[in-house]
Design a protein around this nucleic acid. Structure first.
Lengths: 238, 238
DNA sequence: GGCGGGTATTGATTCAGATCAATTTCTTCG
DNA sequence: CGAAGAAATTGATCTGAATCAATACCCGCC
């Protein structure tokens, strides 16, 4: 956690790795370390561009709200990942909001740095294009799932995904059993799946009674990850 | 419809407008005009990158299919718009499929041209980034709507959107009444809204009986566009 | 410790939309 | 033209998830 980004152990995995020396210098000079408490907003939908962000630690949620105040949690941003770069590059207002779901350490590259940064390094836009393309793929998949897969499957898939990536890789995986933290409130899980909290509760209980997973607070245990994965695929009896 | 793109009346609105003279030359040399009949596939999910496309005329549907063969129509591509550029730029397999919904004239820039094209003109990637960012915004909105808005509202919003953009702008709008073609099969409309065809039928009938719109085949008449728009917003009785 | 406010669970009921099944209407083509 | 097949409509029924309404739980704080 020195003063320069290149020393950050996330650095090589971020888009910033494409920067040349001049770019890295600029980066070190203008980026700002920030700290957010759980629930704190980072930016809101409609805000003018605020810059690009890079998560050092903690979990960030990307959310979208409609006219009636109903919201969905569109995706999560984990340590080592960047976010907010869409507005950063297109210089348009944020179309989604970002919020710290857990306590977070985050670096921010202010919007003022956007033009020089992007112009000074064409490769950077390509990297961010790749990132956006990946996000797009996942969002498209989400549309498809939301429409076609019953909420139970969506939930099981979320568990599988968390089992695979956890906050940073599987937490424990001894004797085939898996244990990890799902660092989200029930409401937030519900809003990722796209159901009401009441339905979420029932679903958690049902899944628990089926023996697919055990829930104690935010701790999750998967007795048989393989079985969970199979169940998460659906019942296509080919 | 000469042999060079710059002469195409869509040209200035496309991302290719960012090309320099050398790029335009290359473009003219390597792009290929294609023709598709209604229902013909242009590329499939999983296909290796096939290039970037530009619609001259007709309507293209971008679709995604899941393991069970269920599909959604994610978005439409109209004349003057480009598509397929994600694979073109990232050089990864297509993550969605494209299909001609009506008879189409389309220009294709083969994948082999991708690298030189992109390297020769950094501004191009920025343009495509903007395009992708816009698609992303719309897809995120779609997730939110799918989860929170009842299908009736989603349908009304689709009508409003078509009334506003039609195939190329409102077709007729005399004495406040509006008339346009919805160039999609009922099944395709259903798969845009995310409901079953049976439900679609019922919904069309219901909306018709409410007097919000009249349907004859693919022709749609909106007696009172303003009323439709208000209804499409939902019943938030503040 | 115990009080108060948010979060989560549980229960009873309702409802939108899916599903299953049967026609009807449109297309296409021999 | 008329038959065959696909697309669309209609009807009857079922079901997953929302809604409404209580209660239980958890946690910071006086």
């Amino acid at each position: 956690m020195g003063t320069n980004c290149a020393a950050c152990h996330h650095f090589r995995k971020t888009e910033w790795a494409a920067l040349d020396d001049a770019g890295r210098d600029r980066m070190d000079r203008v980026r700002r370390k920030c700290h957010f408490l759980p629930g704190e907003p980072i930016y809101h939908e409609g805000d003018e561009p605020t810059g690009a962000y890079c998560v050092s630690s903690g979990l960030v949620g990307i959310r979208k709200v409609d006219a009636e105040g109903e919201s969905v949690l569109l995706r999560l941003v984990r340590p080592g990942e960047t976010f907010g770069f869409r507005s950063f590059i297109t210089d348009e207002a944020h179309s989604v909001s970002a919020e710290a779901l857990t306590e977070c350490r985050i670096c921010r590259l202010p919007q003022a740095a956007a033009q020089p940064m992007v112009e000074g390094c064409p490769g950077l836009v390509c990297k961010f294009f790749d990132h956006l393309a990946r996000d797009m793929r996942e969002t498209e998949t989400k549309v498809l799932e939301t429409v076609k897969a019953p909420s139970r499957l969506r939930f099981l898939r979320l568990l599988v995904a968390f089992g695979a990536t956890g906050l940073d890789g599987p937490d424990v995986d001894d004797g085939n059993e898996q244990h990890f933290e799902l660092p989200l409130s029930r409401q937030d899980i519900a809003s990722m799946i796209g159901v009401r909290p009441e339905s979420m509760s029932r679903m958690i209980r049902a899944v628990q009674e089926e023996g697919l997973a055990r829930f104690r607070g935010r701790q999750v245990e998967i007795p048989d990850p393989e079985r969970l994965e199979i169940e998460s695929l659906g019942e296509s009896t080919y």
